[in-house]
Design a protein around this nucleic acid. Structure first.
Lengths: 231, 231
DNA sequence: CGCGAACGTTGCTCTTACTCAAACTTGCGG
DNA sequence: CCGCAAGTTTGAGTAAGAGCAACGTTCGCG
């Protein structure tokens, strides 16, 4: 366990109401770990032994089908709690978490969840707020999936990633972590072929620019138009 | 507000750890209401002023798209808490709840959520358990939507409704509330035409039997086979 | 620096299921 | 009991996108 600075947590919602001493306590009970791109943080169906906070990097949360297909359910950004199965009285993780880029996460054993909730004001509140947002997001994704054409879904997903992790560059906004065509197909319920064709077409139109695993949105406004229903 | 019997709540998970006195307190603060089939309990985007418990009937939880399409996100069965936006620090309802059959629900003003959580042991626990299950269900639906063909999705949805509300009849298991072809299409992201064709074909094969708004599954086993990927 | 794996592109074919259209059935309210 | 509305069925044409196949490109590693 490496040496950690209180300032890491000070600004984050789950801890914003706490003083330095309390944050020190929380940190002292935590384990910090670094994950390579592609590394698994936890696996669907395994016993939920710890809950996590992402300090740096990005994660994909994945569900697998019996048929071997994978679906990316959501992404986790820095500052978010995740793997909080204990908060929902679950004993196993309902999905798998994989590092989309090199990432750093803190974690605590599940038996500390309840003590944290009672000891630290606002901790539970913020945890459940995250959960509420997540539920809303997934419902939105589901709704898109049910009503929109593939092209609109792919556009929407690009915009969502840009909003969550976008970094300004000279010629547009870059998605802040590596994404393959296949990843996008797993977010939108299509094939990597169709995604590739769409990106090629958009690149020709000057809407995006991409290299292997990296995508820059150069004309977000037009992408919004594409993502809208009956546009 | 009509007269209510404590026995209504005694068996339900959110209240199972409470004594008669506590249940009386909770009931006294509640409002009971009856909803006709098709009636709205609350509407997407409106201020979340109350939280609910379904006593009898079935509800559909719906999201609408800007394009006017509707998607049925999940169903609520008797005994479940719903509209618990306050638990997730939300100030508006993220979806619309509609009675799928004639239903009865209790409700309380949101400002009672926090007091209930602190005063009644196990109340929060059970509420969040419900939420965790719901999150898992929606993820499953999303995964199906992304990876399965229409026929498999429709079969899966029928089985889910049967599991949730099935009633034994002479020749099979009936779904316990009215369902139209259009309803099923809104659960599976297809059209009522396709659903109608599938049901007709299955009826010919002796897998289901249906009349207007009523569906009986006569051969659940074969429906399971259909619902399985790469079957 | 060269090989191999992972990632990406593109063309073609073929099927699924959406769209449009029309008619039929059931049940309710006047 | 009639008429209308809501729900259902069926047919025919079409297009979106999946599946298959082959090839091109990039990058990391020995």
């Amino acid at each position: 366990m490496q040496k950690l600075d209180e300032s890491l947590l000070t600004g984050l919602p789950p801890f914003s109401r706490l003083d330095r001493g309390q944050i020190r306590e929380i940190l002292d009970k935590s384990t910090s770990r670094r994950y390579e791109e592609g590394a698994e943080i936890f696996h669907e169906g395994h016993d939920a032994e710890r809950f996590f906070l992402l300090l740096d990097g990005y994660l994909r949360v994945i569900r697998s089908t019996p048929g071997g297909d994978q679906v990316i359910v959501l992404h986790i950004s820095p500052g978010q709690l995740f793997g909080i199965a204990p908060a929902l009285q679950r004993t196993t993780y309902p999905a798998t978490a994989v590092a989309a880029a090199e990432s750093i996460a803190l974690s605590w054993p599940v038996h500390l969840w309840q003590p944290f909730v009672t000891a630290y004001d606002g901790f539970a509140t913020e945890g459940y707020k995250t959960l509420g947002q997540r539920l809303g997001e997934i419902q939105t994704t589901l709704t898109e999936m049910a009503t929109q054409a593939v092209e609109q879904r792919v556009a929407a997903v690009l915009l969502r990633m840009v909003n969550q992790s976008g970094q300004k560059t000279e010629d547009g906004i870059a998605i802040g972590f590596p994404v393959t065509r296949n990843n996008i197909s797993e977010m939108t319920g299509t094939t990597l072929h169709t995604v590739s064709r769409l990106l090629s077409a958009w690149e020709k139109d000057g809407i995006v620019r991409s290299t292997r695993k990296r995508i820059v949105v150069t004309d977000a406004h037009r992408l919004v138009l594409i993502s809208e229903p009956r546009g």
